[in-house]
Design a protein around this nucleic acid. Sequence first.
RNA 1: GGGCCUGUAGCUCAAUUGGUUAGAGCAGAGCGCUCAUAACGCUUUGGUUGGGGGUUCGAGUCCCUCCGGGCCUACCA
Length: 572
Amino acid sequence: MARVLITSALPYINGIKHLGNLVGSQLPADLYARYMRARGHEVMFICATDEHGTPAELAAAKTGEPVAEYCARMHGVQAELARGFGLSFDHFGRSSSAQNAVLTQHLAARLGAAGLIEQVAEEQVYSPADGRFLPDRYITGTCPACGYENARGDQCENCTKQLDPTDLINPRSAISGATDLEVRETRHLFLRQSTLRERLDGWIDSQRGWPVLTTSIAKKWLHDGDGLQDRGITRDLDWGIPAQFDGAPWSGMEGKVFYVWFDAPIEYIAATAEWAEAQGLDDTAWRRWWREDEGAGDVRYVQFMGKDNVPFHTLSFPATLMGSGEPWKLVDYIKSFNYLNYDGGQFSTSQGRGVFMDQALEILPGDYWRWWLLSHAPENSDAEFTWENFQTSVNKDLADVLGNLVSRVTKFCRSKFGEVVPDGGDRGAREATLIAALETRLRAYEAHMEAMEIRKSATELRAIWVLGNEYLQEAAPWSAFKTDPAQAAMQIRLALNLIRFYAVLSKPFIPDASARIMAALGCDDWSWPGDVSTALDTLPAGHAFTVPDVLFAKITDDQRADWAARFSGQRA
RNA sequence: GGGCCUGUAGCUCAAUUGGUUAGAGCAGAGCGCUCAUAACGCUUUGGUUGGGGGUUCGAGUCCCUCCGGGCCUACCA
C-alpha cells in the first residue's frame, strides 16, 4: 500500500465551469483517486475554489454582493455540482481560507528571509473612475498597428500584435469605459525565480515519463529569450491575502494582496489543513502529506491540470516551495491536458456556447458525462464534443454493451431460476477461456490506469464488458436450460458474478451505475479482483438479488437535436 | 515573429518508440441468436498514414520542405 496525494487544478470562483474545464483536471483526477483507493492505497484527493483576483471582484460587483459573500455562495454552487459529477474530493477547500492566509504569508516570509523577494517600483494604469489599478487586459483601445478599436492592453486580438497598455490609442477601462486613465507608480514584491532557474531546470530534467506537453511548456519558459523571468507576486487589490503582515520581512505593502497565482497552489496544502480541521485532527494529520521531514517521504504526489496551468505548476509553485528552504513535498508527476472544443469551436462562457456543468446535470446524470468525457479525454491533442458522438458513445457503450448485459443476465435468471443465484453445474473449457481473456484484459486495464492513460483505460474497460456478451452468446444459457438446467445454472451464476466484477472495475468511471449494480446484487464486496476465477465466486449459490432498473437510458434523436439547438450559443 | 503539439478508414482514435500484411469502436453490407434497453454475437467493405523529397535492409514512426488544424508566448486565471 502506498500513499498517494492527488490535486486537481483549482476551478476559478467566477461562474460555473464548462465540460472542458471539468475534463481538463477535476474529472481525470477523480478517476485516478477512485482507482487508487480501489487498489487499497491511502489517498488524499484535494481540490478547492480559487477565489482571489480581479475577476472575482468584478463578478461580485456585477451581482451587487460583497466579494466575500459572492465567493461563499459560488463555492457552494461549485461544491454541489462537484457532488453531482461524483467528484470524490477528500476536501474541497477555498483559497480564501484562514489556513491559506497563514501558509501563504509564512512561505512569503521564508522567501523574503532567503533573499528571494525584492521590491520593484513600476508604473501601472490607474482608473480613478473604477477606483483601481487595471490589469493590462482590462484596458481597451485602438490598436496602433492595425486600427482595431477593441484591442486589449496586452494584445490585439485582431492582428495578434503584443501590446503595452500605453501603446493603445484612446485607451479606456474595459470595466466602466472610463477614459480618464492615468499612469501611477506602485511598488510590488517580485519572486526572484530567475535565481532558481538552474535548480528548476535540473529538477525538471530529473523527472521521468512526464507528458511532453508538461515538459515542453516548462522548458520553453526556462530557456526562451532571457530565460525564466522574475514574477510579481502582489497586486493592488482589496480582496486577497494581505501582503503586509506581522513578521513580514518588508514594509510598505499596506493595502496590497498576494497575486492569486502565488496563493492558489499553496491552497493545495492549505486545503489539506482545512481537511484536518474538518476531521477534528491536529496539524500532524496534514503535515504528514506535505512535509518530507514529517512523514511525506513516501508520498507520491500527482497533479492534474489543463495546459494553461502548466507554467505555474512546473515553475512558480516549485520555486516557492524550494525557495522556502523547508522540506515541502514537490510534485512527482504532472498530468496535463489539452482543450475540449465544442462542436466546431471553443466553449465560450461569454457567448453561452457549449455545455456547462449545471446544464449537463439538468439533462443527464453525471455518469453519462463522466464516461464520454473520460473516454475522449484530450490527452494528445485537443478533442471535440459533438452531440452525435456523445449520443453514440452513451447508447452503444453504456446502454447496449454494459446496461443491456446487466439486464439480460438478471432478467433471464429471474425468469428461469428466480431472484437468487442458482446452484449446480461445473465450469468447463468455455469458462476457462473467458477467465483467461478477462485476466489478460484486467492486467492491461490496471497498467493503463496506473499510467493515467485515460482513453486507453476506457477502451480496455469497454473491451472487458464486451467479453461478457461474447460469453453469453456462445454459452447460450437459454438453450442449455432446455437440455441441461444445471449447465445453464452454472453459466448464469458466472454471469451474475461477472456483473459484480464489472461494477467493481467500472466504479472509477461510472460510480453511480456501479453502486446501483451492487445494490441490485445485494453485495457490498468492492474488493479489487486479484485472481479472476476467485473473484467470480464472490456471489455464492443461494444469494438473493433483484433486477435493477434500466441502468442507462438511451439518448433519442429528438433529444439530441433539441440539446444541440439549445446549447449552440444563441441563448438570450 | 518565436516555440510546441497535431494531420492515419466516412467519423472518433490505436499502432509495444525504426521491424512481418497499419489495427479498434461507430457508421455501411451480410449472416446468426432470441435471454435482453429492436439489445447481443460472427463475418465483411473501406487507407498511396496531408503533399513532395531524403536516410535506412526496412519509415505512420527519423531528417528536410511545403500545406492544413491547434496551443503557448509571462499583469485574466
